[in-house]
Design a protein around this nucleic acid. Sequence first.
DNA 1: AGGCTAGGTCTGATTGACAGACTCAGCAAC
DNA 2: GTTGCTGAGTCTGTCAATCAGACCTAGCCT
Lengths: 157, 157
Amino acid sequence: MRPAALDWSVENCTIARAMAILGERWTLVVLREVFNGVRRFDDMRVRTGIPRQVLTNRLAMLVEQGVLRRVPYREPGSRMRHEYRLTDKGLDLWPVLVAVLGWGDRYLADPDGSPLTVTHRDCDAEVRVAMRCAEGHEVTEPRDVLPRPGPGARRRS
Amino acid sequence: MRPAALDWSVENCTIARAMAILGERWTLVVLREVFNGVRRFDDMRVRTGIPRQVLTNRLAMLVEQGVLRRVPYREPGSRMRHEYRLTDKGLDLWPVLVAVLGWGDRYLADPDGSPLTVTHRDCDAEVRVAMRCAEGHEVTEPRDVLPRPGPGARRRS
DNA sequence: AGGCTAGGTCTGATTGACAGACTCAGCAAC
DNA sequence: GTTGCTGAGTCTGTCAATCAGACCTAGCCT
């Protein structure tokens, strides 16, 4: 009855590491904005209501983590400024964002539905995440997924 | 050049709502434990190093949100206790967890690999998330995904 | 010179995380 | 029946993060 997981260390858990970045209160909200094409400090601040200080910190952290990069730009008649764009590491967060969106839409949306959808560039149809195993089977039942120690697992001391 | 997203309100954004639950620093780590079969307070605490108070709060919040439920149990020779199990709403977080795990494994793992994998119950092969559109196309390139206002979108005042 | 704007800093109050000690109920061993 | 153990907490004090609101600053425009 004792769960097998108890024998394994979590010190190098990649979920914990990912959540140290993504789990900060506003991080995914900032990323949602960037994925939406909102790349400038004040646009984000006005839309999200994030306090300036916090937004400054989040953006700096995301740049430091290599999820965003600061890109200089200049609009005619304005001085040089910076905007924030996704790096490849950042773009690879699409599945995370779509997964969170899917769950939120299912359980937390208003009756009139979600304010945001994501679509496929080619055919304009809605995009969702699916779970699939390496053998190509579609995994639709959450209970068909089993966790197990991976290659980097360490026994607990 | 002005992003279209600026015209739309975010007040009912389901990502923000989901992150209000999942975005607390330890929430996904707690859920990782439960998905791993670790269901008891002290087991979680010892494995994760979460402060007691915080773990108490997280568990209570997750129960209140309907992600976990408290189930009484009794081991022979012990008094009645409670353990925490996933509800259906909780089980539907598998794709979120797998997505975060996939990203973490790719960018944050130690050289020897991830300490945790997830497998398909039927064939034992590794499970990953994929993005797929309603037309059945596999979406492999992050740049092929486009956000757009959904049915519940509201114009900004 | 004065004003506007984007993108910040600075300051002080409130909230949350954290560590460590304490509590409490029930079972067990003496 | 007292003592001790164990799982699941609560209490307390410290320290860091969040938040709201005011202030600052570089460059452009009039």
